[in-house]
């Protein structure tokens, strides 16, 4: 690894100052579960690295109607979030125990697919991100955060410091399909939140992972459901729309063809799970 400098800032302030000073050539590392394997394997050789474990970002607070998660909170910490069961489920299905003790909520936002399932769950909940730089702070929707494969709306000098999640008002469901029961990369992951007024859908958010360059919203599927009843017919229509609009890839886990088939199956199952919960 031949890294020349490793910074371990003790506050957000110190972290943003280091980032302003060392700029884009410094690798920012959260739990290390994505960056360290590449460094260990001799694929990446960063000269400067900044770790955030000591930056005071490991907290969960619950102001009115919202859950505020410090970006360095671990996935293990998410297992205690009783208010949002799908975040508990999503966290539990990431890696094994030791990885959940290291991997962070903020870091998961940057995990290239098929990793990054927790971010998909956050997307279905309409999470907002707090981005901080030496110039100040701004809030951005997670859906607007991704701009491409491993690219984001972060400006130079900005850090994701906080994830703000409204406590869901709709019904939620989360399904991750992998090749094994646990500790497995996703073939496809589906997270959904549906708000119903009587029989009709007033608002729907369906997020998919492992079938695009980053966690994505299945917006055509969402449109189909909007204003319609949630029944087998509309669920099937939404599921096939999601399969059509997603952009799966082939890797060691699954082919593009198979992923697309599974998007249809798993969107259907996820939405059906929501109807079962009525």
């Amino acid at each position: 690894m031949n890294t020349r400098e490793y910074f371990l800032p003790q506050s957000v302030n110190e972290a943003t100052q280091l980032l302003a000073k060392h700029g884009p050539f410094m690798l920012v590392m959260a739990g290390g579960t994505i960056a360290m394997p590449l460094i260990n394997e001799g694929i990446s050789f960063p000269q400067k690295v900044m770790g955030l474990r000591r930056a005071g970002l490991s907290y969960v607070t619950k102001p009115n109607g919202k859950i505020t998660i410090g970006a360095m909170s671990t996935l293990t910490q998410m297992l205690d979030l009783k208010e949002i069961p799908i975040l508990q489920e999503a966290a539990h299905q990431v890696g094994g125990w030791a990885i959940r003790n290291m991997g962070t909520v903020g870091g998961n936002l940057f995990a290239p697919p098929p990793a990054g399932d927790f971010a998909a769950a956050l997307m279905a909940l309409d999470a907002q991100l707090k981005l901080v730089s030496t110039a100040g702070a701004r809030i951005i929707s997670l859906t607007d955060f991704y701009t491409g494969f491993m690219t984001t709306a972060l400006s130079p000098g900005e850090l994701v410091t906080e994830i703000q999640v409204p406590v869901p008002t709709g019904k939620t469901a989360y399904l991750k399909y992998g090749r094994k029961h646990a500790n497995t990369p996703a073939v496809v992951t589906v997270a959904a939140q549906i708000e119903l007024d009587g029989e009709g859908v007033t608002n729907s958010r369906i997020a998919l992972n492992a079938v695009g360059p980053h966690p994505i919203r299945a917006s055509k599927a969402e449109e189909i459901l909007s204003g319609s009843p949630l029944n087998p017919t509309t669920i099937n229509m939404a599921a096939s729309a999601a399969a059509e609009e997603c952009e799966p890839f082939s890797d060691a886990i699954a082919t593009e063809w198979y992923r697309r088939k599974m998007v249809e199956v798993y969107v259907r199952r996820t939405l059906t799970k929501i109807t079962d919960r009525r």
Binding site: G32, P37, N40, E41, A98, N101, M102
Partner: peptide, 26 residues
């Protein structure tokens, strides 16, 4: 050395962690 196998698991304050991914300074 990728956090994938668990053979390097150590306990940090009693919590299992992958020592291959953990900087000493942390």
């Amino acid at each position: 050395k990728q956090g994938g196998c668990g053979s390097c698991t150590v306990l940090v304050n009693g919590d299992p962690m992958m020592s291959c991914l953990l900087p000493v300074e942390d």
